[in-house]
């Protein structure tokens, strides 16, 4: 680049990653972890409206990172940046950098289809396909062309076990996914997301459409998922964030990431007054 106003003009991906390791600290087992998803100066606009403002974040591997904040502060927008689901929205414009293992996913040579095969997503409203339970779980493997390489039956079983749904549905794999209860449907969607064995799972308020019992089952499940996957979960339920996450990012109005730290620190001793106000309910 001819006009580089960075103070360190030689910054490259490798250096970024090394510094980030220090920034991210240690994982659940005390070993140092690398950031899987990193954002640098990330700005998102929908038309003229700004949804994310200058976001910098390093999301650690194999841990649950919660994103909390009031409605409309850009939580879903951030999540959709990670797997480029924002590509579906015509008015959406993204500046800055969002990297997956150090590679900017908005580089020209990145294929969003390939990216989404590494990053699964679970939505707010359970959205199983109007297909059988089996076909729902196998869908990702099939479209990703993996159906021929793996034992599909075994993969479906593994995914359903992983989503704590196997015992409830193993005798009705051929019935429609729509016949399940809301909580089961959401676990089916989780099974569908983990079946192709992604590295990261994005969840956008996955329990907000469910009753408390179904929600708590999903919460338990999320804890288990972090052993194998990096989980990024958006929630507007602060108790949920406190219960299930290792790290918490607080977004506040205007699409600003105000504070990002270990979850106990955020809830017990936040550095930023605005975060304290938000946590204690004075704001948002």
């Amino acid at each position: 680049m001819a006009t580089d106003h960075e103070s360190e003009p030689t910054t490259n991906d490798a250096q970024l990653i090394t510094t980030d390791v220090q920034a991210t600290g240690t994982g659940r087992n005390g070993e140092p972890t690398e950031p899987v998803v990193t954002a640098r100066d990330l700005d998102v606009h929908y038309g003229a409206e700004q949804a994310l403002n200058d976001v910098d974040i390093d999301i650690p591997e194999h841990r649950v990172t919660a994103i909390i904040g009031p409605s409309g502060c850009g939580k879903s927008t951030f999540l959709r940046c990670v797997n480029r689901m924002n590509d579906q929205i015509d008015s959406c414009r993204i500046d800055g950098e969002l990297s997956f293992h150090g590679k900017n996913v908005y580089d020209e040579d990145v294929d969003p289809v390939a990216l989404r095969r590494k990053i699964g997503m679970v939505f707010q409203k359970p959205n199983p396909f109007p297909k059988s339970i089996y076909d729902n779980v196998a869908y990702g493997l099939r479209v990703q062309g993996m159906a021929g390489d793996v034992d599909l039956d075994a993969a479906v079983e593994r995914a359903l076990r992983g989503a704590a749904l196997w015992d409830e549905v193993n005798d009705q794999l051929d019935s429609s996914g729509l016949d399940l209860s809301g909580g089961q449907q959401q676990r089916l969607c989780i099974a569908r997301a983990i079946a192709p064995d992604p590295e990261v799972i994005l969840m956008d308020e996955p329990t907000s459409a469910l009753d408390p019992v179904a929600a708590s089952k999903i919460e338990d499940l999320i804890d288990d998922l972090a052993d194998e996957y990096t989980v990024i979960i958006v929630t507007h339920n602060m108790q949920q964030a406190a219960r299930i996450s290792d790290k918490t990012a607080v977004f506040l109005t205007g699409g600003n990431l105000v504070e990002f730290d270990e979850t106990p620190t955020i809830f017990e001793n936040p550095a930023d007054d605005r975060v304290e106000d938000y946590i204690t309910g004075k704001f948002g």
């Binding site: 797997n83 689901m85 579906q88 289809v113 390939a114 989404r116 095969r117 699964g120 997503m121 939505f123 409203k125 959205n127 199983p128 396909f129 109007p130 869908y139 990702g140 479209v143 990703q144 969607c189 569908r192 997301a193 192709p196």
Partner: peptide, 11 residues
């Protein structure tokens, strides 16, 4: 919702 579910799986 259904389309997004499929796109998110790399369809």
């Amino acid at each position: 919702d259904l389309r997004n579910g499929a796109y998110a799986l790399g369809a």
